[in-house]
Design a protein around this nucleic acid. Structure first.
Length: 502
DNA sequence: ATGTGC
């Protein structure tokens, strides 16, 4: 048997790209890392494996706890982690969702080709930078008065479209139609809402960006056709989340859960995994508040889409929908927990069980925590919008600003391998602090422009350094693993034209 | 990720 060991954590190779940390001691379930040998080396280089192992201690977790090929360490639980936990007897953990609730990405199509934008990159990047607030501070596209916040938290994209910030077809082209039905805005604190007030329609900082891209490769022509993607076509990628509102909500509930559920916390190996037992008041409140933050993030991306459409309309002197065909391909969430029904192993009493203890399989409602992981439902799944149901859910994977991105479709194996999930990006190789020591923003910007004709405009040079292409893993390798495992199949690859960020 | 720490 092939094995690898990192800091005393031993992994057994189950099959190609599947590595298991066997169950031992207090682990409730085994854990699995989905990675090639080279990606596993990178994952083993930080605390991700320890964090993944810690997550197996969460009560009610269903086997296996998972780390996607782009995984790296995060707060308590790896970014790139998937934890499916019984929603009746288990728990919900804000650290396994992440601070940036519904950080996510959407792709907007156009009928422009690379030739149409070539030579006009700087004009376009300047206009987008002008129209779309970015960085810390800087305000939003609209004033988030009480009605706007309430509408966004309660009804998500539905509210935004009703207010004129989108078109009817945008709704069906978002995960969950852009609205969590179980959102409970009343559980979002006033402080969180105050922070979101001037952030409605803003990119934020860090790895968040808007990028104009061109399609360079098509791998599955039939699926690409269903998605409306063609080689040389121009698309717009928007990557951002719920800003201070989601951050504050995560913090609010972490503190309350630590205080209220200290008994559960004492059983866990890391305080950062603090979890509320299923059925407790805090579990219900956090779940409802998180759903409202998910809606807020969708509205955020919708408002940015609105500004991008307007800007393209002005720059190309045309109607963004009628003439430029700026329809949404899809919008996916990266940091969420949702109640989903999956088939799991159960014991004689019908409780989720591990390995040989499972005598049968049955459907159970689970809190599926995806933190830095993307839902990737396959063809035929009822939750895939009708337009895409025959081919599978579009999965959009943003890469670094020097390497391009991918469009995948949910693969046939995703439900049996990864609770219907795949990777979410290239995955960091080093901390932001280390990145700033290794790179200088201005140099990175010059190299991208001179070497690859990629035009980057940012509020801060430090952000460019933190997000330098060299800070990320090899996205082609991440996607190869996803494709070969059959959890997310390659459909098309894109390459940056211009990029705005915080 | 983040009014860049609790």
């Amino acid at each position: 048997m092939t094995t690898r060991e990192f800091d005393g954590i031993r992994l057994e190779k189950v099959r190609e790209h599947v590595w298991e940390i066997p169950r031992e001691g207090e682990m409730n379930v085994p854990a699995r890392v989905l990675a090639s040998e080279s990606l596993l080396e990178e994952i083993g280089d930080d605390d991700s494996l320890q964090q993944l192992k810690n997550a197996t201690h969460l009560p009610g977790i269903v086997e296996p706890a998972l780390c996607m090929p782009d995984g790296h360490q995060g707060y308590g639980f790896p970014v790139g982690g998937v934890g499916a936990i019984d929603a009746r007897t288990g728990c919900i953990s804000p650290g396994a969702v992440g601070y940036d609730v519904n950080c996510g990405v959407r792709m907007v199509k156009t009928n422009l080709t690379y030739d149409d934008v070539r030579g006009r990159e700087e004009e376009l990047v300047d206009a987008l930078f002008e129209a779309i607030p970015s960085g810390l501070g800087g305000g939003g596209v609209i004033d988030g008065d009480a009605d706007a916040i309430e509408g966004a938290l309660e009804r998500g994209v539905e509210w935004a479209v009703e207010e004129g910030y989108g078109i009817e077809s945008d709704l069906a082209r978002c995960e969950d139609e852009g609205r969590r039905p179980d959102a409970r805005p009343e559980y979002v604190s006033q402080k969180a809402m105050d922070r979101g007030r001037n952030q409605m329609g803003s990119l934020g900082s860090g790895n968040h960006f808007l990028e104009v891209q061109r399609v360079t490769d098509v791998f599955r022509a039939d699926v690409a056709e269903s998605y409306g993607l063609e080689e040389d076509g121009i698309v717009v990628l928007i990557h951002c989340g719920s800003r201070g509102l989601g951050h504050q909500t995560c913090n609010d509930y972490l503190r309350q859960i630590e205080k209220e559920h200290g008994d559960l916390l004492d059983e866990l190996p890391d305080k950062e995994l603090a979890a509320a037992p299923a059925g407790s008041e805090l579990a219900e409140e956090y779940y409802g508040a998180m759903g409202a933050c998910i809606n807020f993030a969708w509205v955020n991306r919708q408002l940015i889409t609105h500004q991008a459409r307007k800007t393209f309309g002005e720059v190309f002197d045309a109607d963004p929908i009628e003439d430029l065909g700026m329809e949404l391909l899809y919008d996916v969430a990266h940091n969420i927990a949702k109640k989903e029904t999956h088939e799991v192993g159960v014991d004689a009493e019908g409780r989720p069980a591990v390995g040989d203890e499972a005598v049968d399989r049955a459907e159970r409602e689970l809190y599926v925590h995806r933190k830095g992981a993307t839902r990737a439902f396959p063809a035929g799944n009822a939750d895939v919008p009708e337009t895409y149901r025959d081919v599978g859910q579009p999965v959009i994977i943003p890469g670094s600003m020097g390497a391009g991105s991918y469009v995948l479709r949910g693969g046939d194996q995703s439900m049996s391998v990864s609770f219907g999930s795949t990777a979410h990006g290239a995955g960091r190789l080093m901390s932001r602090t280390q990145a700033k020591q290794e790179f200088w923003g201005g140099d990175v910007q010059d190299d991208l422009e001179d070497g690859q004709q990629i035009y980057v405009k940012a509020q801060s040079g430090a952000t460019i350094a933190e997000e330098a292409p060299g800070v990320y893993k090899d996205i082609d390798e991440v996607i190869r693993v996803s494709d070969e495992l059959g959890i997310g199949d390659k459909v098309a690859r894109t390459f940056p034209v211009c990029n705005i960020k915080g």
